[in-house]
Design a protein around this nucleic acid. Sequence first.
DNA 1: AATGGACACAACCGCTCAATA
DNA 2: ATATTGAGCGGTTGTGTCCAT
Length: 316
Amino acid sequence: MGRTPCCDKRGLKKGPWTPEEDEILVDYIKKNGGHGSWRSLPKLAGLLRCGKSCRLRWTNYLRPDIKRGPFTVEEEKLVIQLHGILGNRWAAIATQLAGRTDNEIKNLWNTHLKKRLICMGLDPQTHEPFTSCSTTITAPASPTTRHMAQWESARLEAEARLSRESSLFNPIPSGRTDSDYYLRMWNSEVGESFRKFSRVDKTACQSPVSQASSSTKCGSLSAVSAEIGPIFAGSSTAGSNQNEDMECKSCKSYTEEMMAGSDSSSTEDSEDSSDNALQLLLDFPINNDMSFLEEDMDKYAMPCAMLTENSFICHL
DNA sequence: AATGGACACAACCGCTCAATA
DNA sequence: ATATTGAGCGGTTGTGTCCAT
């Protein structure tokens, strides 16, 4: 089927919008209680712009609910976490960040976060360590890289468990994509537990790994939280400060903080629960026991996209 | 002060999808 | 069932700004 151009481009203006054009567009939308048909809007409003251009200008810049200004640390963390689940689905990610546009998030990712992950030795697309191979996971050479690989492994395990536990209660409806499912999950009670425990919970930090392994069979939401908590709390404490792992603005400083966190864990009071959590993370087996993924795979209907996205799990 | 590279952001392009005739 | 259209999405590019040399 052929495609006609969205508009007759002859005589239409391109490039940056002027304040006058912005005003015309905003006035028109205000007066008409909405944009109506984008295709006809430019003509009706008296703009020499393509409808597509008007829509983009409105949704990315002029909309009254747009939140301007730099991204907060929490927002950056959320983008990274959601990207790990949703991939490059910027619009879907944007729905989780009030006032942020897909374009803005995409730019943030391409200019900051992607580079940060690369510096951390992680593939920005898969969030896997670059060092992983198709059959085995080998320990990265440097402690920092190894640490990040462990962090990622912990994240993937938590995601997998979260998925499996949640699927017991909310089977994926047919016709919905896996990532939609994860987004829904993210907004669910389970996701809330996930997010809550991604912040440091010192009590949970003291929970041993055995708690996590035993809870995989109990199927309760609290159990999911209990097992995710220690893992993510551990990851969060890996930085020099709790929950500060994404705060540094450069890869260098980030790496330094990671190193500082690792070093301190061996010297601080062993009763410190956050240190216990850090130790737990550092002791996370590099040849991770992912057997939990193989158990009753069919029964739990692990979404294939996730397995593909986290390909090394697939190959274990 | 001039210049060139890096960076950040806005905007455009092309594709896909859903709705509709 | 098929063709057409409008809207939305993600990738890419263009441009302005900053900073180091």
